[in-house]
C-alpha cells in the first residue's frame, strides 16, 4: 500500500453514528482495515447534513468518498438524512451505505427505496464487525470506482 503522502490522497469516510461506542469500534476497525482512511464523525443527522453541505463549523470539511449512515439517531434519523442526501443533486452521488443494528425488512426496503447504495447490518460479534468494515473498505474504497476523484494519470 502506498503511503498517503506518496499518493497525496486520503480516503474520507463520513460516519454518521450517535453511539460513541460504535464510533470507537468503527474507528478501530478502519484502523485495522485501511490506514489511508480518515474517519469523520457526525453524531446526528443535523451534523451530518452540515458536514456534507460544508456549512457552519464544517466549511472546511472535505467531501466524503463514502458515507456510513446509522438509522436510529435522535434529532434527524438516518432515513431522513438519506432522503436529503439523495434529494440533493450534489450530494446524491456520494455512495451512502446504511450501517445499522436493525435487520428489519421494512428498514431495508425503505432504505433502498430511498436509494441507499447498500444496507449493512452491524454484526453482534466484534470479529464479524471488523470483518464487515474490512469488506466495506475492500469493496467501496479499493475495488469500486468512485466519482469525484481526480482522474489519476
Amino acid at each position: 500500500m502506498k503511503s498517503p503522502e506518496e499518493n497525496n490522497q486520503f480516503l474520507n469516510v463520513l460516519l454518521v453514528e450517535d453511539s460513541p461506542g460504535d464510533v470507537r469500534l468503527t474507528q478501530e476497525a478502519f484502523r485495522e482495515a485501511n490506514l489511508a482512511v480518515r474517519l469523520h464523525v457526525a453524531n446526528d443527522g443535523v451534523q451530518a447534513m452540515a458536514f456534507l453541505r460544508q456549512e457552519g463549523a464544517y466549511v472546511e470539511a472535505p467531501r466524503p468518498d463514502l458515507t456510513l449512515l446509522d438509522l436510529n439517531m435522535p434529532k434527524m434519523d438516518g432515513r431522513q438524512v438519506l432522503a436529503q442526501i439523495k434529494a440533493d443533486d450534489v450530494l446524491k452521488t456520494i455512495p451512502t451505505v446504511i450501517l445499522t443494528t436493525s435487520a428489519a425488512d421494512d428498514d431495508i426496503a425503505k432504505c433502498y427505496q430511498l436509494q441507499a447504495n447498500c444496507y449493512l447490518t452491524k454484526p453482534v460479534q466484534l470479529d464479524a464487525f471488523e470483518n464487515l468494515v474490512k469488506s466495506v473498505n475492500d469493496f467501496w474504497l479499493a475495488k469500486a470506482r468512485l466519482p469525484n476523484r481526480q482522474a489519476e494519470d
Binding site: 461506542g21 443494528t101 436493525s102 453482534v124 460479534q125 466484534l126 470479529d127 464487525f129
Partner: peptide
C-alpha cells in the same frame, strides 16, 4: 432482544478489544 443487543454488543466488543 434487539434493544438488549446494543449495550451487549458494546460490552462484548470492548472486552474483547
Amino acid at each position: 432482544s434487539h434493544d438488549l443487543q446494543e449495550p451487549l454488543r458494546m460490552v462484548a466488543s470492548y472486552t474483547q478489544l
